[in-house]
Design a binder for these strands. Sequence first.
DNA 1: CGCATTTGACCGGCGC
DNA 2: GCGCCGGTCAAATGCG
Length: 490
Amino acid sequence: MERRRETALLLFEEKNEHAHARTIQELDLFSQNHHRRDEATIGVDTASPKGNQLGLKEARDSLVLHHHETGSINTGLNLLTFNSSQISGQAAVLIQDKEIKSNNKLINAQIELNRVTEENQRLKSMVDQMSKSYTALYAQLLQVTRQQQRDQLIHHQQQQNEKSSSVADHPAELLAHQFMEPGPTGFRKTNNGVEDDEAEQSSTDRAIINIPSAAAAADNNRNPKPTRERSTSCTDADATAAEQQPPGRKARVSVRARSDAPTISDGCQWRKYGQKMAKGNPCPRAYYRCTMAIGCSVRKQVQRCAEDKAILVTTYEGHHNHPLPPAATLMANTTSAAASMLLTGSTTSTDSLVAGAGAQLQYPYVSTMATLSASAPFPTITLDLTQPGSLLQQRPHPLQLPLPLYGLPQNLPPADALRIGARQAAPSVVETVTAAITGDPNFTAALAAAITSIVEASPRGGGNAGSSGPHVVPGSPQFPKSCTAFSINY
DNA sequence: CGCATTTGACCGGCGC
DNA sequence: GCGCCGGTCAAATGCG
């Protein structure tokens, strides 16, 4: 009997897979009719041939025999046979077991929930802390910028006094100062009460929206062609011309990113209010207005690049008059910081602007791509997030940094630093920026160093103002490898 | 039905 | 003064 059972099991295992499927069916039938089969198996066993076609049956029979020998089969389903008197007690025990098991599951789930909640709280506090740090640093940046602008105003006035005694000994420097000093012009505009739809905004905003005045003055200086509003004078007439700029002219921050989506997700809510075909671009330009708060003046234009339709160019204008979600705050601060860089920039001529705009950021591994466009009515900073991230791919960190504030290879030449940037397939710039920031624990320190470097490298603040052509200012030792790739259009 | 989008009309700046 | 162009408005339309 024992040897026959082993043989049967061997044959059973040797059966192929489709036979196995059939076996399951047969075993199901067997389970349903096992009493009847029990009666029939003995006879079959004694007469069973050794052919393969009967192997399954033999194995099945052997299982049945095993069942007879042991008296029970543990199916794992608690399908034991008991008499009626035992059923109620066993059922009660089973129900109790089930309750205990379910209670254990519930407790485990609650423990897991508590753990996840605690982790969530911890992450929230981390995000809050990071946001506070960023806000504090940004406030510091603005404070220093304002202080610097006041210094510039004082210096400008001193220079005017000097000029009155000696007439234009160095016209080139004069041009440079005119171009480099957006602060005084802008503040004058505001302080004189010139109509400004942003006048009610904070001085923080004012610092940004005053860029156009300075840039317009600079543009006037660069453009020798006399026009109705453009004065050939290089002194107060420029400021006057700047003040004559329509109040609607504001600094713009343009973001170039690769995206298939109609717009990039920047954390704000926008309502489309117009679409136009712009000259020189087959793709339409869409106009959006911020709808997160009533009366918010922020607008953006979205247009695909004519050369590369995969590139989405989003141009922001104005400043939010309402609190922003963290993601949008990050985006707004990033663009405002870029505008602040423009605000603190220093160049002396068209030629030097291209190099000087990069030089003004004066970190050993920072460079920028500056282009001039006399036709552009607005001073625009373009954050280019479309450049191939070949160098980024060398980074050990997996994150793709659109604004790589640090982490460039030490041997990176500045020219190559221009090409830093992530080729983004994902539409969310904010997510990427957030990832870039959160991906590095030293971001706060790096940002602080960057702000310091920006201020130090700015006109008068860093002592490099007025020099013509590219120049190099020692970068911050705490921020030796920062890089922000953007171009500037006036 | 309310909201968002579409789209043609309109307006103002600018160059000729 | 006229036309071009960028930007905005608002009625019409679409959509959930």
